[in-house]
Simulated assay, not measured.
Amino acid sequence: MPVHLPPHAVLAEQTDATQLTRVSLADMERRIKLYLRFGEPACITSLDHWRRVAVFLPGAVFCRIRWQANNYGVVRWQLMVMQACTPLDVAQRIPGVLPGAQLQLHVEGEPAVRAVLAQIDAIEALGISPAAVSSAYWRTLGNRLDARLPLPAYTTERHAAWLAGRARS
């Protein structure tokens, strides 16, 4: 569970070499909802009654969902799995994510977002944190969705192989 602290409390503990990633979140009833599906922010700061900013340390993996509607219905579904960067990493510029992040998965549209949410639910059902999942798996999901192919399940065996490979490097 994230700690709700003023931003200067988190910043005071960081060195100049550490780059924090700030992620905008919002909740305007029946209009827009920007929220985190998973990820462990170092802190969350409320800006007003409908806007917040989540702050992530370098290397943290998180998922932000954007849902947007107008007077005629839902106009946008978006899901992004991202990894917070250090100043030396290459990062994509993403609206509402400062200074940017490494994009591991980006899907648009209700069917694609719902399909990925089902995969996230299945991962959590295995007792695995989605933030600990292999970045290659998130990229594979994006490629499979683009090619309109069935989505592969993330298994405990796949996760064990990912952790073993990471331990060797």
Rank of each mutant, 00 (worst) to 15 (best):
P2M: 09
H4D: 06
H4R: 15
L5E: 09
P6G: 01
P6S: 07
P7T: 04
P7I: 05
H8E: 05
L11D: 01
T15D: 11
T15M: 11
D16M: 08
D16V: 12
Q19D: 12
T21Y: 04
S24N: 12
L25N: 02
R31S: 14
R31F: 14
I32T: 09
I32Q: 11
L34W: 15
L34R: 15
Y35V: 10
Y35W: 13
Y35F: 14
F38H: 06
E40G: 06
P41E: 02
A42T: 07
C43V: 02
T45D: 05
T45N: 03
T45P: 01
T45C: 07
D48Y: 02
D48S: 09
D48G: 08
H49Y: 12
H49W: 08
W50Y: 14
R51A: 12
A54S: 11
F56L: 07
L57I: 05
A60W: 00
V61I: 09
F62Y: 10
C63A: 15
R66F: 06
R66M: 09
N70L: 07
Y72K: 14
G73T: 08
V74L: 05
V74F: 02
W77N: 05
W77Q: 03
V81G: 04
Q83I: 02
A84D: 07
A84E: 04
C85M: 06
T86N: 14
P87F: 03
L88M: 07
V90R: 15
V90F: 11
V90Q: 15
Q92V: 08
R93A: 13
R93F: 07
G96K: 03
V97A: 04
L98D: 13
P99C: 03
A101H: 00
L103A: 09
L103M: 15
L103S: 13
Q104H: 14
L105T: 02
H106V: 08
H106R: 14
V107E: 02
E108F: 07
E108L: 13
E108S: 10
G109R: 00
P111D: 03
V113L: 06
V113M: 05
R114G: 00
V116M: 03
A118N: 09
A118E: 14
Q119K: 13
A122S: 10
A122Q: 02
I123R: 01
I123E: 02
I123Q: 00
L126R: 12
I128K: 01
S129H: 08
A132F: 07
S135W: 00
S135T: 15
A136P: 00
T140Y: 03
T140M: 13
T140F: 01
L141Q: 04
N143V: 07
R144M: 07
L145Y: 00
L145S: 06
L145F: 01
L145M: 07
D146F: 08
A147Q: 15
P150R: 13
P150H: 04
L151S: 01
P152R: 01
A153C: 05
Y154W: 13
T155C: 06
T155I: 04
T155N: 09
T156P: 06
E157I: 15
E157P: 02
H159W: 00
A161Q: 15
A161P: 01
G165D: 11
G165N: 14
R166E: 11
R166Y: 01
